[in-house]
Structure formats: structure tokens, C-alpha cells
Amino acid sequence: MDYAERNTGGGYAEGVPCWADAMLPDVEGGKRFYGELFGWTFDTGSGPEYGHGTQAYSDGLPVAALAPKADGRMPTVWTVYLASPDAAALAERIKGAGGSMITEVMPVEPFGSMGLAADPEGAVFGLWQAGTHQGFGKQGKPGSYCWTEVYSRDKNLVDPFYEHVFGYGGVDLDLDGEDFRIWSPAGAEPGPDTAVGGRSLLAGLTPAPVSDRYVPARMPAHFLVYFNVADADASAAAVTRLGGRVQAPPADTPYGRIAVFTDNQGATFAVLQG
């Protein structure tokens, strides 16, 4: 399920995932972990005005960022950012549809403008309005972002939220008995060929959902970020060697072989081979 950059001006259509970052207690430790796991290289890092983060590269192209947690109480987590030509207007739609803004939209000059939002169940995602930083320079190939999905408990609350706010077209899929919905950007023919993300249901709501493999019943709603890899089994072995955890071992799906990991600092992510 991959949908290329589509809009005028070379950026991303509204609602298309365009960036991902990890908030970590130890950025240098994160560089070692992800550098070995994905083969990423990193820049020298930003100054205090940009939070002392670092940008990751695969084949010399930007693929993600790692940033230090400003407060130890903040979650250690990967966050996906959804593109918008007008993040301030998008923030108002989010609030009007029952979501909330955790961090109001603010400029990150000259790179763009960003904000952090939560859907009606509390799943957090980012907003990005591009300036000089358009987003992923590489995606859908080994070492880069390839997919995201939100894990929710009430599809009757969450599906209308995303479809109203972003204009997504949705298609329901039955994946081994799991209630799963995929979303395509406004104006695209809905379906796997144009899908940019999906919605799964958290444990306890469907018979043996995929989420039961790694999500405790008490886990709040959240997004899961996927990275493409050449070999999911080799990635699982590397995660273990590097001090992380295999939350869901590699398993075949109609869309490729997937696994869910937690890094050595507590950030959960997934990989897709295929």
C-alpha cells in the first residue's frame, strides 16, 4: 500500500504522511540503534532553536528525525506527520470535529510549520506545512518509511473524524477476521493502490485481531509507524542484538512480511518486508 507524493508544487497532498520522528531520552543512543538497524546516517544535529534534534538519511536522502525529549514525562514514541497546505486551518477542522491540539501550529523557520494533534480517542499525530523541508526524500524502499495505521477502539467515532478532517476515501478490508479500514487521499480512487494509511481496532474488540499480538488491552489509541526492510527476520535478530524487543515476530500478510518492535529506549515501530 503505497501512494506517491501528489499535489502541485512537488509536495504532498493533504493528509498524506510526509515525515516521522522519534522522541527519545538519548538521541546518541538512538543514532547507534537505528544506524545499525536501518543503515541510517545522521547530520551533526540542530541547535537549541530546533530542539537539538538530528535528521536521518538513507542513501543520502532524508527519511526521519530523532529528537531529545524536553521533559522526561513525555512518551518515548514515533510520531507520523500528515501534510497540509494550511496547517492552521487544518488545526481548526481537527478541533471542530472533536479532536484537539496538543501543540498549536507554530513556525519552524525556514523549514515549515508544525503542530501535534490528537483524534477523539487521543491518538496523536503531527501536522506539517512544508517550507524548505518537503518531507521524506525516500519512502517505500528499504531503510525508509512505508506505512502507518491508527489503533482505535471505536471505529464509529474515529472513522468519521479522519474522513471529515482529511477528506479520505475509505475501504474496509477483512484481514483474517480483523476489522481493518484503509484510507486514500481526497480525489483518489479509494483502494489498496492509493491508500496512505489505515485504521485497526485495539485488543478485545474483534476475534484475535492482529493488535492482540503486541498491544496490551490497556494500551491507549495510537499510531504505528512502519519502515520498509529487505529482510524482516534479519531485522528482528538485529533488534534483539541491539537491546530492543520483538513485540510481534515476523509474520506473512497479503501485503508483505511484517513485524513489530520496540527499540532499546521504549519507542515502538513496525517493519514491512515487501
Results as ranks from 00 to 15, higher is better:
200 S>L: 14
200 S>M: 15
178 E>K: 02
215 V>H: 01
178 E>G: 09
216 P>M: 00
171 V>R: 08
216 P>Y: 02
191 G>L: 13
196 V>A: 08
192 P>E: 15
177 G>M: 05
185 P>S: 05
211 S>T: 13
200 S>A: 15
203 A>Q: 13
202 L>E: 00
189 E>A: 13
214 Y>K: 01
202 L>H: 06
172 D>F: 07
182 I>H: 05
177 G>S: 06
187 G>L: 13
191 G>Y: 12
194 T>Y: 04
200 S>G: 15
194 T>D: 06
182 I>F: 07
175 L>H: 07
185 P>L: 10
178 E>C: 05
187 G>I: 12
213 R>L: 11
192 P>I: 15
174 D>N: 15
192 P>K: 08
180 F>W: 14
184 S>L: 07
183 W>K: 10
195 A>W: 04
180 F>G: 00
204 G>F: 07
192 P>G: 03
207 P>D: 06
180 F>L: 09
199 R>H: 10
214 Y>E: 11
214 Y>S: 11
191 G>H: 10
206 T>M: 09
201 L>E: 07
189 E>K: 14
177 G>D: 07
207 P>I: 03
186 A>T: 13
195 A>T: 08
190 P>W: 07
211 S>K: 02
176 D>C: 05
199 R>W: 07
186 A>F: 12
184 S>I: 10
175 L>Q: 03
209 P>A: 04
187 G>R: 08
204 G>V: 03
191 G>C: 09
184 S>G: 12
199 R>F: 05
174 D>C: 01
202 L>R: 07
174 D>S: 14
206 T>N: 05
216 P>F: 02
176 D>K: 14
207 P>N: 08
181 R>K: 11
179 D>S: 12
211 S>F: 02
186 A>M: 15
188 A>F: 06
171 V>D: 02
209 P>R: 06
217 A>S: 09
205 L>W: 03
214 Y>R: 04
205 L>A: 03
209 P>T: 06
206 T>H: 07
206 T>W: 04
172 D>W: 12
184 S>F: 02
204 G>S: 05
204 G>P: 01
196 V>H: 03
183 W>C: 12
196 V>R: 03
212 D>R: 00
179 D>H: 15
208 A>K: 12
215 V>F: 05
201 L>V: 12
181 R>W: 12
206 T>D: 14
209 P>L: 04
192 P>L: 14
207 P>T: 04
203 A>M: 09
195 A>S: 13
188 A>C: 13
171 V>Q: 10
188 A>L: 08
206 T>E: 10
210 V>F: 10
174 D>I: 07
184 S>H: 09
175 L>K: 01
175 L>D: 00
174 D>R: 11
194 T>A: 13
200 S>C: 11
211 S>N: 04
197 G>H: 02
205 L>P: 00
171 V>C: 01
193 D>K: 13
209 P>K: 06
195 A>H: 08
181 R>E: 04
202 L>F: 03
211 S>M: 08
211 S>R: 01
171 V>N: 01
193 D>Y: 06
